[in-house]
Simulated scan of single mutants.
Amino acid sequence: MELYCLFVLLAPACTEITSYINTYTGISGIPGLPDISALTTVDGKEVYYYDSNIKKLISKQGWMNNTDFSETWKMLIEDNSRNIQRFKMYTNFVKKRFNQTGGVHTYQWMYVCDWNDETGDSHGQNMYGYDGEDLIVLNLKYTGSITSSHHTAQTHQENNDKVQFEILLNINNECVACLKKFLEFGKDVFKTTVQPEVHLLQRNASSPVVCLATGSYPEIENISWKKNGEDYHEDVETRETLPNEDGTFQKRSILKVKPEEWKKNQYSCVVQHKSLKKAIQMIVREEEIKTNHKPVVPTNNITNVSGLVVLVIGLLIFIVLLVCVWCRRKRSRAGTNRCI
């Protein structure tokens, strides 16, 4: 990936690590779908998008229409065009290595750079995937080590570690420069924080308790559990962060202990987020849990007897009406409308 965004920048006011992710995806063998699509995100928010059907780079943020950003936008268009050519070379290489001429296959190329404006530290990764598996991963932070899950890729990367590392180093520097530019123009978007809403959920009375933190921006830092004030890690399953339709995020953690266990001990879900001065703690109590389960309300004998009486009276009225109707029809045939 070549990102030629070398310019003098004003440092944005931020103190946390910011992440820039550029992903190219290729799909072969499925008519109608774009052969190549690309998506760039900053801290989980979409910045721009491309696919080979429309053959156009589309901005996803209003601040990118700023006239002061126009030169950078032109550079991004040129960079994307070069990256498309690089990606095509990669897919052709994979097809040749695996000797494939047909079928449905997916190819991915992802570049990630993280930057901390306080320390100046940055971390870059260059990753290639094929049919859902990692093919080559080049990690700048760990001295340019390369790992592969395919022996065919291993032969390609031998003796290329130093060259690949130098390429990644240049890419990382250029990526960080672009990231700073995005943060400068989009600071009102990227530096806005939204507090999460935290809910305890349960499918039914015997199901595990789910702690859901949703509606947050940026992503939830951590969800953990405590038992009687102490950190608790057993019988806990924390799921990956998911995006909401409005650009916020959600994350959930499942406490897999039986109800009788959390009823006699104090379990609490702890949610940490950059918008919070103090972590949110939700104690697992029946009155705090939202559920679709409706308990059966017991009825007493008086209620049962009253219901039976109403049912019997209704049935008698219905029978009388039927007899009356039958009588009217019979008298009508006999020339009289009387029903005695």
Rank of each mutant, 00 (worst) to 15 (best):
L140H: 09
Y4P: 14
A153P: 02
K74S: 10
T241M: 04
M282V: 11
R252A: 07
D68G: 15
H156G: 09
I27E: 02
G144P: 09
G44I: 11
I319T: 11
N116W: 06
C175Y: 08
L135F: 06
V209R: 00
V112R: 15
L212G: 01
Y49S: 10
E2D: 09
G144K: 01
L255M: 05
T192Y: 01
R252W: 07
V305T: 12
N170T: 14
Y128G: 06
G314R: 01
Q164N: 15
N172S: 12
N99H: 06
L183D: 05
I289Y: 00
P34N: 03
E184S: 09
N139G: 07
L6K: 12
D188R: 05
L33P: 02
L9R: 13
V112K: 13
G132L: 02
W63P: 00
D51V: 10
H199D: 12
T143D: 14
E230F: 00
M1N: 03
N53A: 03
L201M: 07
I27Q: 04
D246H: 04
G32M: 03
E286F: 01
P295H: 02
T152H: 07
D134G: 13
H150D: 12
Y48P: 08
W109G: 04
L201F: 05
Q157A: 14
Q195G: 13
M1K: 04
Y111S: 14
L179F: 00
W73Q: 06
N65L: 13
T143V: 11
T40C: 10
N116G: 02
G62Y: 06
G229P: 13
G26I: 11
F98R: 10
H233L: 11
E221K: 14
H105R: 11
F87H: 04
W262N: 06
R97V: 14
